[in-house]
């Protein structure tokens, strides 16, 4: 064989027998007794310490019960370094933690001071079975195979493999109703529906008017009569007002209303809601992975991991002067999915 290991051998095992080998294994060092092994007073002291710890644990457990029944769960207290905290939680944690620690330290102190401290040696055996055992096992296995009649009855073997390969399909199929098929659901939002085109404030759901905006204002909004979080997760928008001269293109300005522009609030990278808008630069920053979009320039990505610009929503005002969407988004909002494509 051209390969295989070539070692100088672990000194100490192989070379231990060599006369005068400077690297020979000198064997286990002698056991040095502890103080508690030779001094009865030290040993007695250790016993009292262990018992003291176990006793303290008992007291702390009783303290836990007392705290549980006597401290009001809304009480707070001031603890140096921790500030104002819930008294009950503090008392319960300290008594429980203390009682457990006392048991732990007691047991370890006992082991270290009073239990026999002489190391003992156990021998290992190779994991591999002995050749006799292996031969016996092989013999038994052969007998088993012969008894099964399999070698002569190939048909059983083939059909069994087929059956075993197919039966997992049943449980897999049974999972079918975990959810509906995606169809085109990820492509649209509630704005596509004419009855959901009123733009309302994200928190108090009042309808928004152009007069709610000064230069630099940012307001989070959503469509009227929203029913589910699933709709909100796609339809959420932000509106900002930019000085119309600073909007990069007429096309974009036309999608807005007198400098008010509407963008999806859902980051095209991984779906986090956008939140940090800087008025001077018109940059919108996603707090999750810092994709940055230029809202004066069609939501162009100026930095970060987002591969897509932030989608705009075309808006206008209705007869009563309230802001409304002209239609849905031109493209799917939120994170990319396989069937999305460039559209």
């Amino acid at each position: 064989m051209s390969y295989g290991i070539d070692t100088h051998g672990g000194h100490g095992t192989d070379l231990a027998q060599v006369e005068g080998d400077p690297f020979a294994d000198p064997g286990l060092p002698h056991h040095t007794p502890r103080r508690t092994d030779i001094d009865a007073r030290a040993a007695n002291r250790a016993e009292r310490q262990v018992a003291g710890l176990f006793g303290l644990s008992t007291i702390l457990t009783i303290g836990f019960i007392v705290a549980f029944v006597s401290i009001d769960k809304e009480d707070t207290m001031y603890v140096v370094g921790l500030g104002t905290i819930n008294s009950l939680n503090f008392a319960l944690g300290v008594t429980l933690g203390g009682s457990l620690l006392c048991i732990g330290f007691g047991a370890i102190h006992w082991a270290r001071k009073l239990m026999n401290a002489e190391e003992i040696v156990d021998y290992r055996h190779p994991m591999k079975s002995s050749p006799e055992d292996t031969a016996d096992a092989l013999e038994l296995a052969k007998q088993g195979v012969a008894d099964s009649a399999l070698p002569r009855r190939k048909l059983i073997w083939t059909s069994l493999i087929g059956a075993m390969a197919l039966f997992p399909l049943a449980p897999v199929i049974a999972l079918r109703d975990l959810g509906p098929l995606p169809h085109k659901k990820l492509r649209g939002t509630l704005w596509d529906k004419p009855e959901h085109r009123e733009i309302v404030h994200a928190n108090d759901e009042r309808r928004l008017k152009p007069s709610d905006f000064a230069l630099g204002t940012m307001i989070s909004a959503k469509p009227n009569d929203l029913e589910s979080l699933e709709d909100l997760a796609k339809a959420a928008i932000v509106l900002i007002k930019i000085n119309p001269q600073e909007i990069r293109s007429k096309e974009l300005a036309d999608r807005g209303y007198r400098g008010i522009l509407a963008y999806s609030k859902i980051c095209p990278h991984a779906g986090c809601p956008l939140g940090l808008y800087e008025d001077e630069t018109h940059h919108m920053l996603c707090p999750c992975h810092q994709s940055t979009f230029d809202l004066a320039d069609f939501g162009r990505v100026v930095f970060g991991p987002s591969a897509r610009n932030l989608p705009t929503l075309a808006i206008t005002v209705d007869d009563e002067g309230f802001l409304v969407a002209k239609g849905g988004f031109d493209e799917p909002v939120g994170p990319t999915f396989f069937e999305r494509g460039d559209a």
Binding site: D25, G104, A107, I108
Partner: peptide
């Protein structure tokens, strides 16, 4: 004295029962 063919240390009973058991209570504590 510690070779590839032996294992040197303390016995499960009582030393490791006490040490490991005690250590569990310390982690919990």
């Amino acid at each position: 004295g510690r070779t590839n063919e032996n294992v040197v240390g303390f016995p499960l009973m009582p030393v490791y029962m006490a040490k490991a058991g005690g250590f569990f209570f310390i982690v919990f504590g």
